[in-house]
C-alpha cells in the first residue's frame, strides 16, 4: 500500500510530506510548552476531523453530532478507569464499542427509514443532545458537576494508563492522527472507498448498480464513530475533566467538522490542513483579545472563516494548495 502511494505521488509532494512528518516528530524538542499545547489541540482536531470526514467526505453522510462519539468514548474509558481501575489501554475497547453501537443505532434509524441529508444530520444532533441530558442526570458519572480523573504521578510517563507529560500526549495523538490518515488512505483506495464514492456521487445510481446502500453506509458510520470514540479516550485522559454541558454540545460537533470544511471535505489532507490553519488562528485571536471582554470572538472568527471558504474556495483549501504547489503527479491522478 505504502509503495503504491509513494509511486503515485510526485517527488515534490513526497518531499513536503517528509519535511512535515519530520517536523512533527521533533516538534516537542523545539517549541515551548504553550506552542506544544496548541499543537496537541491541532492534532486532536486533525484526528477527529479525519474520522468525521470519512462519513461525509467519503460516504456522503452528514453528521452534526460527532461530539456524541467523543463523549461516549471519553466517559466510558474515564468511568472504567476511575470506578474500576481499568486502564485505558483496555477501556479503549469498551469506548470503541459504545461509540460504534451509538453510531450504528443512529445509522440504522436513519438509513432504514430513508432519512437523508439534513434530516439525518438533525437526527445526529438530537442523539448527541439527549444523551448529554441523560448523562447530566447520572450522578454515578458525576452528573452536571462533571467527572474528574485523578491527577498524580505526572513526572513519569505511563503509557498504559495514559498518565504523563504533555509530550507523551503529543506523541499519542500524533500516532493516532498518522494511523487515521493511513487507514483512510487505504480505505479510500479499496473496494469500500469506491462504493462510498458511488453512494456520495449518486445514491440512486449506486443503488441501481447493485450497491447494498444500507450495509456500506452502516460500515462508514461504524468506522467513523469508532475512530471518534478513540479520540474521546485520548480527550478524557488529556483534559482530566468531563462536563456534560460542554461535551455533548452541538458546538463541539461543529468544532470537529470546521477543520475538514476549511481544509477540504472528502480529501485526505483536508482535515489535517484545516486543523493546522484554524486552531492556531483561534488561539492567536484568543490571546490577542485577552482581557478585552470579547466573549465568543473565536466563534465569530470561525464563522467568518467558513463563510469565506464557502464563498471563495468551496472545495476547501487543500485542493487549491495542491494545485498552487504543483503537487500533482505527472500522470493523471485523482487527488
Amino acid at each position: 500500500m505504502i509503495a503504491r502511494v509513494i509511486e503515485s505521488a510526485s517527488p515534490r509532494a513526497l518531499a513536503l510530506l517528509a519535511v512535515v512528518t519530520a517536523a512533527l516528530l521533533i516538534a516537542p524538542y523545539l517549541v515551548d510548552s504553550y506552542v506544544l499545547s496548541v499543537l496537541i489541540i491541532v492534532l486532536y482536531f486533525a484526528y477527529v476531523g479525519q474520522a468525521w470526514n470519512l462519513m461525509l467526505g467519503f460516504a456522503g453522510q452528514l453528521s452534526l453530532g460527532h461530539a456524541l462519539f467523543v463523549s461516549l468514548g471519553a466517559y466510558t474509558s474515564a468511568a472504567l478507569f476511575i470506578k474500576f481501575g481499568v486502564p485505558p489501554v483496555i477501556g479503549i475497547f469498551a469506548a470503541i464499542a459504545m461509540a460504534v453501537v451509538a453510531g450504528c443505532l443512529i445509522g440504522y434509524l436513519g438509513f432504514r427509514f430513508s432519512i437523508r441529508g439534513v434530516y439525518f444530520a438533525l437526527l445526529t444532533i438530537a442523539f448527541a443532545e439527549f444523551t448529554g441530558i441523560i448523562v447530566d442526570h447520572i450522578s454515578w458519572l458525576g452528573a452536571s458537576s462533571g467527572l474528574f480523573l485523578p491527577v498524580k504521578n505526572q513526572q513519569s510517563n505511563d503509557l498504559l494508563n495514559l498518565r504523563g507529560s504533555p509530550t507523551m500526549f503529543y506523541y499519542v495523538i500524533l500516532a493516532l492522527t498518522g494511523f487515521a490518515f493511513a487507514l483512510c488512505s487505504w480505505l479510500l483506495n479499496s473496494k469500500l472507498g469506491l462504493y462510498w464514492q458511488a453512494i456520495r456521487e449518486d445514491q440512486e445510481a449506486a443503488e441501481a448498480s447493485g450497491v447494498p446502500l444500507f450495509r456500506y453506509k452502516m460500515i462508514a458510520v461504524a468506522i467513523s464513530s469508532g475512530l471518534t470514540g478513540i479520540g474521546g479516550v485520548w480527550y478524557a485522559f488529556y483534559y482530566n475533566n468531563l462536563f456534560p454541558e460542554t461535551m455533548f454540545k452541538t458546538s463541539q460537533s461543529v468544532e470537529i467538522i470546521l477543520g475538514s470544511v476549511v481544509g477540504g471535505v472528502g480529501t485526505l489532507f483536508g482535515p489535517i490542513l484545516g486543523a493546522f490553519v484554524l486552531t492556531p488562528l483561534g488561539e492567536i485571536l484568543t490571546a490577542a483579545t485577552d482581557g478585552m471582554h470579547l466573549d465568543g470572538v473565536k466563534s465569530f472568527f470561525w464563522g467568518f472563516c467558513v463563510a469565506a471558504i464557502v464563498l471563495f474556495r468551496p472545495q476547501g483549501l487543500w485542493p487549491w494548495i495542491y494545485d498552487v504547489l504543483g503537487l500533482a503527479p505527472k500522470k493523471e491522478g485523482k487527488r
Binding site: L194, Q197, E201, D202, A205, A206, A208, S209
Partner: peptide, 30 residues
C-alpha cells in the same frame, strides 16, 4: 435492489445517472 441486480435484472436509469467525478473505467467497474 442489490439482490435483484444479482439475480440478473439491470436498469439504465433516467437522465443518465453516472458518477461524474469517477473515471469512465471506474464507472464501468462499479
Amino acid at each position: 435492489s442489490y439482490r435483484v441486480c444479482d439475480l440478473g435484472v439491470g436498469q439504465v436509469a433516467e437522465g443518465r445517472q453516472i458518477f461524474p467525478n469517477m473515471s469512465v473505467l471506474e464507472n464501468l467497474e462499479m
